[in-house]
């Protein structure tokens, strides 16, 4: 990932002249970036400031700044409620399951593609596996529902093999598995591209030297390829860990039904349900803020750890 703010070359104050001069020299840049900064304030920072309603009893009439201050009440209510442990466990369970299952398929696919001997076959597989990334979540869930419906193709196969039809989309126990493996289906090809570009950057002389020394492909994968894509894997893992808490609304909401809500209710969907549907604005904001803060802490922590261990980091 891009490193933020590295001053290669030009030591900051080298250009003689005062700060004022340096600012004046590029006055147009401030003009150019004015619109994006306004956007940032209006659409990103204003809602962050508005998050203070988590500490108030928000009502429409008194507004964000005028509603009664209640401190941490909403947070305490949430932590004491039975929903707290349920949505937290569901969120973490789903995220971790998703990370664990999702990390290897792209690496395996990238390696397999980089050692394929027929160029056309390789391109075909890459193109086909990459395709689901472009299909919207709504349609991926539509396809999932059709494939795994009681009368759908998967159940037809199960029955033909002598098994019993399974209500895949309705069983609370199967929700996480359906979510995670449909994600693998959609994302593997896309994520593999990142590894493919990392593999392409490996010095070919290493491979040639190893081949001359009689190394098999397995040995080359183990000792050359895997180490060289580790930094990429670590970065993707960092990003994934930072998102453990903030698993999105979209896909879970689309998969949620009355039958599986016990296991499919995660923090995001709970925030949505009690906030936009239940109109408990402050309470919902408190839960959302808890989620955002924990995500931030997680991301900073994991990033610091990886920086120390690996010298790879997001910033």
């Amino acid at each position: 990932m891009a490193k933020i703010g590295n001053h290669s070359g030009a030591p900051a104050a080298k250009a003689a002249g005062s700060l004022k001069k340096r600012i004046m020299r590029h006055w147009q840049l401030y003009l150019i970036i004015l619109l994006p900064v306004i956007y940032l304030i209006v659409f990103k920072y204003k809602p962050i400031i508005g998050s203070q309603i988590a500490f108030r009893n928000y009502n429409f009439r008194d507004g964000i700044w005028g509603s009664a201050w209640v401190g941490l009440n909403h947070f305490v209510t949430f932590f004491k409620s039975p929903q707290f442990s349920r949505v937290l466990i569901n969120t973490l369970g789903l995220s971790i399951y998703n990370i664990v299952v999702g990390i290897f398929p792209p690496i395996i696919l990238a390696l397999a593609l980089s050692y394929v001997r027929s160029r056309i076959w390789g391109k075909t597989v890459q193109m086909v596996t990459y395709m689901p990334y472009f299909i919207s979540t709504v349609l991926v869930i539509g396809i999932l529902n059709q494939m795994f419906s009681l009368s759908g193709p998967v159940n037809n196969i199960i029955e033909a093999l002598g098994g019993e039809r399974v209500h895949f989309m309705g069983k609370p126990k199967l929700f996480k598995t359906m979510y995670v493996f449909s994600d693998v289906w959609k994302m593997t090809g896309y994520n593999a591209v990142i590894y493919i570009s990392a593999l392409a950057a490996v010095d070919q002389q290493l491979h040639e030297a190893a081949t001359v020394d009689g190394a098999s492909i397995w040995q080359r994968i183990r000792h050359i390829d895997i180490p060289s894509i580790m930094p990429t894997a670590v970065i993707l893992l960092i990003m994934a860990c930072g998102k453990v808490m903030s698993l999105g609304y979209e896909k879970v909401l689309l998969m949620q039904n009355d039958l599986n809500v016990q296991t499919s209710d995660i923090i995001s969907t709970y925030v949505y349900r009690i906030g936009l549907q239940g109109m408990q604005y402050s309470y919902s904001t408190a839960i959302g803020l808890f989620q955002s803060v924990v995500s931030l802490i997680l991301l900073v922590t994991v990033n610091a750890i990886s920086k120390k261990l690996n010298e790879t980091s997001l910033w």
């Binding site: 703010g5 940032l40 906030g275 959302g288």
Partner: peptide
């Protein structure tokens, strides 16, 4: 040599790692 580049970049990146909850965003 754009003065304030680092601070502005930080301002942008922060919104990537910290997002406002749903309701304040909706109210906005």
């Amino acid at each position: 040599d754009f003065v304030g580049r680092k601070a502005l970049t930080g301002l942008f990146v922060f919104t990537m790692i910290f997002t406002a909850p749903l309701i304040p965003t909706y109210i906005n």
